[in-house]
Computed example of a mutant assay.
Amino acid sequence: MNTLIAKKAPNFTANAVLNGKDIVPNFTLAQFKGSKYVLLFFYPKDFTFVCPTEIYAFQEKMNDFESRNVQIIAVSTDTEQSHWAWLQIPKEKGGIYGVTYPIVSDINKTISHNYGVLSANWICNNNEELKATGEIIAYRGLFLIDKNGIIRHLLINDFPLGRNVDEAIRMIDALQYYEKSGEVCPANWKKGEKSMEASHSGLLDYFSS
């Protein structure tokens, strides 16, 4: 399986809901290149159970992402109308009212396919009928894209496994620290902790300190 790590993030243009209320056409990933980092995450379905916990978890950390110049973008294979309807329903009634970052409609499933997170297998049988095994929806994929449009971190979870938003922030901190200092970040590194020089001598200095 080929990986997208360290490669150019596939661009897309699609319908999306902005600010929890505005359906817009031609929303594109490319608009952020050169100006913002992007945290792009996929989720399986609107009107489900684990998905809103993740969607709200990203919203609750919005100030942390904005202070790091990161644009959050969510994607699922539902329609933009479905996104909009879900956004109008309060949290206590199973909705995601109050979420402000863009939620993109991948109704054609091309975005999910290009990022390698589309579930199920499908074939065209001898009767020229398209057959699928399981639902053709997105796994819980997460992609950290730098300001040059390069994917620097990715994570793909199966449907039952929700993601850790604090870990996504930690990875952003690690990337931005590396870009600024040129030093690399060891296991479990957190902002403010000791890093490592990207050399053999730096490695020895780290473990002898």
Rank of each mutant, 00 (worst) to 15 (best):
I151A: 06
I145V: 00
Y139K: 13
N114P: 10
I107C: 13
I89S: 03
N114E: 13
L155R: 11
I89L: 01
K91S: 02
L155S: 13
A132M: 13
T100W: 03
K131D: 14
Y101A: 08
E128Q: 15
T133D: 14
Y139A: 10
L154D: 09
V99M: 01
G149C: 04
L154G: 05
L155F: 10
I89A: 05
I123S: 07
K91H: 06
V99C: 04
I89T: 04
Y97T: 02
K93N: 05
G141L: 00
G149E: 00
P102A: 10
N125W: 09
C124P: 05
S119E: 12
Y139V: 08
N108A: 12
R152G: 07
A120P: 00
L154Y: 12
R140D: 07
I96V: 12
G116V: 09
R140Y: 08
I103T: 10
D106H: 09
Q88E: 12
N108Y: 01
I111E: 06
K93H: 02
H153Q: 15
L144N: 00
E92S: 11
P90Y: 00
N148D: 14
Y97S: 13
G98P: 06
P102E: 09
I96A: 01
G116M: 10
G134L: 01
C124A: 13
V104C: 03
N108W: 01
N121C: 11
G95D: 04
G95P: 06
P90F: 06
G116W: 08
E135V: 10
A120F: 10
E129C: 12
N114D: 15
W122Y: 15
V104T: 00
F143Q: 02
D106Q: 09
I150F: 02
G141F: 01
D106Y: 08
N108L: 10
N125K: 09
G149A: 07
R140Q: 07
Y139L: 13
I96L: 01
R140C: 08
R140W: 06
I137K: 09
G98D: 01
I136W: 06
P102R: 03
Q88P: 06
I137S: 04
H113I: 11
I103G: 05
L154I: 08
K91I: 00
I150T: 09
K131N: 14
L142Y: 05
V117D: 05
I137W: 04
I103V: 11
G116E: 07
L144F: 09
I107H: 14
S112H: 01
I111M: 04
T110N: 14
V117C: 03
L144T: 05
E128K: 15
L118P: 08
S112A: 15
Y97M: 11
V99Y: 03
I107V: 15
P90T: 08
G149F: 05
I150H: 06
E129Q: 15
L144C: 03
E129Y: 11
V104G: 01
P90L: 02
I145H: 00
K91G: 00
G141W: 06
K109G: 02
Y97P: 03
H153S: 14
S105V: 06
S105I: 07
D146N: 14
N108F: 03
K93S: 03
